[in-house]
Design a binder for these strands. Structure first.
Lengths: 110, 110
DNA sequence: ATTTTATGTCGTATGTTTACGTCATTAAAC
DNA sequence: GTTTAATGACGTAAACATACGACATAAAAT
């Protein structure tokens, strides 16, 4: 494959799909939930909370960071992670708008 | 691996992750959007709407059907697909509840 | 009864994700 | 200055997803 097939679709669908993909693993959802609740969100704490190896958790954290849902701030040896509230708000809006679109139009019912 | 790691997480997170996974491909989102708008939602029409092979579209349709987001009703040679409005409503609620949970709690801001 | 049409199923190649051990780096503690 | 601790980067095996051609099936049209 020389180009990605996903690029053939509308930009807005691509963006929603990208965010959905990040949310498509329970470990990442658990990390988001934990970050929403904790005060001290050090990487090590997150690892203790998630039943996967440190390496795997780190990988999930990088993925969340990549799409902007969390931020990591280095503090000496440790790294403090936290939710990016504006990114989460954007994501929420994107999802809700799409789902509204699906329900508003009066399509054939089964 | 003898068991799936995803099973180690809360049931509610597993369900949200499953739905997010289904929404993680723009072709499936495009199918949902098309079904929301069309009156006649015959499989062939959907295939014409999506820039992928008939086989691949069929595969995406099966996936949407598997999680219950769409229904297919055989009508002679053709198959009429349509959105499952109750499933979509459930999905919407699941997502919104989770995303609310992320924003409501006052976590550390970056 | 053959042919055509609409659709699904199977096999399979290629690409992506998940999971984790090992190694590297750098700060802090001693 | 060594050692310990926290983290990220690298390599890689196994599982899973994507994409599609070829074949199968069964209704409809001829």
């Amino acid at each position: 494959m020389t180009y990605k097939k996903t690029e053939l679709f509308d930009k807005d669908l691509q963006r929603i799909a990208e965010i959905a993909k990040v949310m498509s693993h329970p470990a990442r959802l658990a990390i988001l939930r934990y970050l929403a609740n904790c005060k001290t969100c050090i990487s090590g704490d997150i690892t203790n909370e998630i039943p996967l190896s440190r390496t795997t958790v780190s990988q999930h954290l990088q993925e969340l960071k990549r799409v902007g849902l969390i931020h990591g701030e280095i503090d000496g040896l440790k790294v403090n992670y936290c939710l990016c509230n504006t990114c989460i708000a954007d994501m929420k809006k994107g999802f809700i708008d799409f789902l509204e679109e699906l329900s508003v139009v009066d399509s054939i019912k089964c």
